[in-house]
Design a protein around this nucleic acid. Structure first.
Lengths: 252, 252
DNA sequence: CTCCCGCCTGCCGCTACGTGAGGGTCAAGG
DNA sequence: CCTTGACCCTCACGTAGCGGCAGGCGGGAG
C-alpha cells in the first residue's frame, strides 16, 4: 500500500511540512516517488514514522532519534525500557517541582521570605552525579531525607513559625558567640553546635554526630550555604564548621 | 540584596546568555545597573525569575509567560496555585504515557505485535477517564509494576530467550488441554493456570491469586490480549480466564 | 477542457537561546 | 602602580524544528 504525503500527514497527525522536513534531513525518506516526483510512502515508512513520533514525543532530538532507530544492535524491549526510565525521571522531576511549589505556597502564606537558594533549589545545578553526591553527603543516607520529608509534610503554620523562631534565635546567639571572640572549640560554641544538631533532629531527621559533621562540611563546600552564613556574619561558616567538628569529637 | 548576572545564573541554574535574552525581550529586566553598566538583580527580580522558570518548565512560550506574569489580576499566590495545577496535570499526562509504555512492554513479553493505532495511542487523543479506569483495572497495583520493571531491567538476551521458551511451552500445553476437551476447572487446566501464575511471579512480579484473577479479567476485557489468545487457539482466552479463576478459588 | 485540490521545490521567518568576538571592569597580588 | 584573571558588556551570527508562503506542475471529477 502506498500513501501520499497528505494522507500520511493526516493519519499521523503531523503536517506535510514536517514530513518534508524529515525527508530533507534524511530521518524519514519515502521509499519511492511517482514519475511526477510525488513522494510515496509505504507501510514500512509508516512504521518508521510511528517510531519517530514516539521518540519525538519523549523529547529526543531528531538526530538522536535517527541514531536510535537505525541502530541494528538494539532490540525494541531495550527502547521501551529506556522510554520508561526517561519518563519516570521526568515525573520525578515534576514531582520535585510540585513539592517546591507547595513549599513556596506555605512560605507565602506565612510571609516568610524565601532565600534565593530555596527559590531555585529545583532548578539549581542539576548535574546528576554532583547532585547525587551532594545529596549523599548532605543527608548521609536517603532514608534520613525521606524521613525529613515525611515529617515536614505534616507541619502546619504554627510549626513553621516555631522552627523559624528557634532557628533565628540560634543564629543570633551563634553570631554573638562568634563576635565575642571565643574560639570555635570553646564550650559555648560547641554547645551551640550541639543545639544546632538537636534542632535538626527535632524537626527534620535523626542527625547523628557523623551526619552532622558531614552537613558542616557541606556548608563549607557548597558556595550557596557558605554565602548564606557569610551574609549573616563574616567568618560564620568556617566558625560553625569548626564548632560542629569539635563538638562531635568531644562527644564521641 | 543585589546580585550580578553570574550569581543569578548560578543559583537559578540558567546561563548568563539566558538572562541577557530575557532582558533583551523585556521578560526580565534587572531593576538597575551599576555605573559601569553591570546588571543588578534584586530580590524582586529573583522572584519574577522564579515564576518565569516555572512557567517555562511547563512549556509556555516566553511571550505568553510575560502576559501571564504581568497580568495585574493575579497575585503571587494565584500563580503558585496555577502552577501547582498545571504540574499535576502534566504529571498525570506523563503517567499515562508510562502506562502506555508498560502496556507495550507487557505486549512484547507476549510477543504481541502492536498495531499502528496502538502505538499512536501514547500521544493520540484518548479518553482520559476511560484510560484511567483501564489502567486501574489493568495493573491493579503499581508497586507490582515497579517491581516488574526493576527485575526486567536486569534481564539480558538469554533471560528473554528462556522466558519466551517457557511461555511458548506453557502455551502449547495449555492449547493441548483446551483441545482435549476437559473443563476449565479440571485439575489439568487449573494446574496450568497455576503454572502461568508462577511464571509471572518468577520473571516479573509477585503475582498473588488476587492479582492473577485481575490479570485474567484484563485478558478478557482488552481486545488486544483476547485477540492474541484467540489467535493461538479459538476459545483459549475465555478458557484461560475460567481456569485462572477456578485455580484461585480452589487455593484460597 | 477546465477547475480546483494536492503535490513539488525553494526560501525566509520564528523561538530560545548557544557561542564566540572584541572589548571594558574590578579586586587581588606582585 | 601595574598586571592578571575572573567577570561583565554589546553586537552578531548559528542552530533546531518546523511554519508559511510563493510560484509552478499534476490529476481526476465534471
Amino acid at each position: 500500500m502506498a500513501y501520499t504525503v497528505g494522507q500520511v500527514a493526516r493519519v499521523a497527525g503531523v503536517t506535510v511540512r514536517t514530513l518534508h522536513h524529515y525527508d530533507e534531513i534524511g530521518l524519514l525518506s519515502p521509499s519511492g516517488r511517482t514519475p511526477a516526483g510525488y513522494r510515496r510512502y509505504d507501510d514500512a515508512d509508516l512504521e518508521r514514522l510511528q517510531l519517530v513520533l514516539y521518540y519525538r514525543e519523549l523529547g529526543f532530538p531528531l538526530e538522536e532519534i535517527a541514531a536510535i532507530i537505525d541502530d541494528p544492535a538494539a532490540d525494541p524491549a531495550a527502547h521501551l525500557r529506556r522510554q520508561h526510565e526517561l519518563l519516570t525521571v521526568r515525573i520525578k522531576r515534576l514531582q520535585e517541582m510540585v513539592t517546591a511549589i507547595e513549599f513556596a505556597m506555605e512560605a507565602s502564606k506565612l510571609n516568610i521570605p524565601l532565600t534565593p537558594e530555596e527559590r531555585f533549589e529545583v532548578f539549581g545545578d542539576f548535574n546528576p552525579e554532583e547532585h547525587e553526591a551532594e545529596a549523599e553527603q548532605r543527608w548521609g543516607d536517603t532514608e534520613a531525607y525521606r524521613e525529613s520529608n515525611r515529617r515536614v509534610s505534616r507541619y502546619g503554620k504554627d510549626d513553621w513559625l516555631r522552627i523559624k523562631a528557634e532557628n533565628e534565635d540560634w543564629g543570633r546567639r551563634m553570631t554573638e558567640v562568634l563576635a565575642s571572640g571565643v574560639p570555635a572549640d570553646s564550650p559555648e560554641a560547641m554547645e551551640l553546635a550541639e543545639e544546632h544538631r538537636q534542632i535538626i533532629s527535632r524537626w527534620f531527621y535523626e542527625c547523628s554526630y557523623e551526619v552532622h559533621t558531614g552537613l558542616a562540611d557541606m556548608y563549607m563546600a557548597d558556595e550557596r550555604f557558605t554565602r548564606h552564613y557569610e551574609n549573616t556574619a563574616p567568618g560564620l561558616a568556617a566558625y560553625l564548621n569548626e564548632a560542629i567538628h569539635a563538638n562531635a569529637i568531644s562527644r564521641a
